[in-house]
Amino acid sequence: MSLVSLVFLAFAMSTDAFAAAIGKGSSLHKPRLTEALRTGLIFGAIEAITPLVGWLIGQAASRFVVEWDHWVAFTLLLLLGLHMIHVGLQPDSEGEEKPSRHSFWLLAVTAFATSIDALAVGFSLAFVEVNIFVAALAIGLATTLMVTIGTMLGRVLGAVIGKRAEILGGVVLILVGSTILYEHLAGA
């Protein structure tokens, strides 16, 4: 996987967390940088761990699918991307009560929920030539940065940007999957 693809992947993986952070930030009264950084670090750590777990699962399965690994990676990223686009196009639910303060556990559960796709991406990365530790670190750092910014922007931007970020992340995942497939087929 090229460096450009890795950077796009890292930021694509952080878009759903960014969207969630905008929502979390919008529910706080004038969020401070320390709260935003705390939120970013929680999300970033969880988002960095989940692709490692997925990669380990993928490594165990890789010997069974080595002949069509590029198709597995492409299909998983395509499905994840389409799911993110679908979620981004859904209307927001009305009447949700927003918390006045975010506990560690609420942030951790939200971060885990937004990192399920990183688990699947980690699984798909087991089938391509990539250093999973560099990829996980890049995903974690991008998520930390995006969530910190999203929390600070949340009060101003609200949910309008959040949905668009989810759609953009889905498109980027599809492009990364297509690039993996193209690079493999062009090299064959």
Rank of each mutant, 00 (worst) to 15 (best):
D92G: 15
A36K: 04
D92F: 14
W55A: 08
H70P: 08
I85T: 11
Q90C: 12
I46L: 14
G40R: 04
R32H: 11
A60W: 14
A73F: 00
A48I: 11
E94V: 13
F43T: 02
L37Y: 09
H83V: 00
D92P: 10
G54P: 02
G88M: 08
V72H: 01
F74C: 04
H83T: 10
A36F: 05
G40S: 05
R38C: 08
D69F: 05
L33Q: 09
F74H: 05
T39P: 05
L82S: 09
E35N: 12
E35I: 13
V87Y: 11
G54R: 00
G95Q: 13
I42S: 06
G81Y: 00
I42D: 01
W71L: 15
A73K: 02
F64P: 00
F64Y: 14
L56A: 09
G54M: 01
A45V: 15
L77I: 03
R32T: 13
F64T: 02
G40A: 04
I49M: 11
L56H: 00
H83F: 04
F64M: 08
G81H: 06
L79K: 05
E35C: 09
V65G: 14
L78F: 08
I49Q: 06
P31M: 07
G40Y: 06
T75A: 14
T39F: 10
L76C: 13
A60P: 09
T39I: 07
V87S: 14
